[in-house]
Design a protein around this nucleic acid. Structure first.
Lengths: 99, 99
DNA sequence: GTTTCATTTTGCTATTCTACCATATAGCCA
DNA sequence: TGGCTATATGGTAGAATAGCAAAATGAAAC
């Protein structure tokens, strides 16, 4: 792939990629409602804590979420709130796309 | 992962996932300007034709692009034009996220 | 200081993705 | 028809990702 394409689009592509997983999308929507600790997210999703933690680190790496410590638990919040507006396309969220 | 999360978010996540590759994002932006044949996209990107063709089939599978034949070449067009508006977040496209 | 709880990191395996090559298919034109 | 161009598909090696389990970190309570 040409370098210029990589330079221009890889950052944005990485952000979309971070949103391209059901669990991470759920987490983003949950954090849109209120700040939530890892333990609670883990309960809601039902996966292993380590799995949730890894998803959170992907979202953090993409600059979408942010975390602060409160006592001995870590509270995640939605840093890039605008991602909540990304599903505005008609039918975009209803599509049954298969990759 | 809980079934309900999968049901609600997997469709939308798949669409984001389709946009989560620099080449595909470039293609989407290019098709936003004008309908383009596979051969020209291949020249612009600089990858093998088969690679481009496969990226296009991912985008088609996600319902984002559409194709029509014109003579002996296939013209792709942006079907879900609203995806062009998805990068409206401040800093969203400037982010240097690493996954 | 040691124990405990919440979270992160690491190690591992299975699965998926990417890019390429080779081959197949489809339409055009001589 | 046969050859040519454009695109799609199948196969595959290497990289990346998902998920679980277990070890490591860090704060707080005892």
């Amino acid at each position: 792939m040409k370098r210029s394409i990589l330079d221009v689009y890889s950052g944005e592509a990485a952000a979309f990629k971070a949103l391209g997983h059901p669990t991470r999308l759920f987490i983003v929507h949950q954090l849109g409602k209120r700040d939530t600790c890892v333990c609670e997210l883990t309960d809601m999703v039902g996966d292993d804590v380590s799995t949730i933690s890894k998803h959170l680190s992907v979202l953090r790496g993409a600059g979408i979420v942010d975390s602060t410590r409160k006592g001995n638990q870590i509270i995640y919040k939605l840093k890039l709130r605008c991602v909540l507006n990304l599903a505005v396309c008609a039918n975009f969220s209803k599509r049954k796309a298969k990759l």
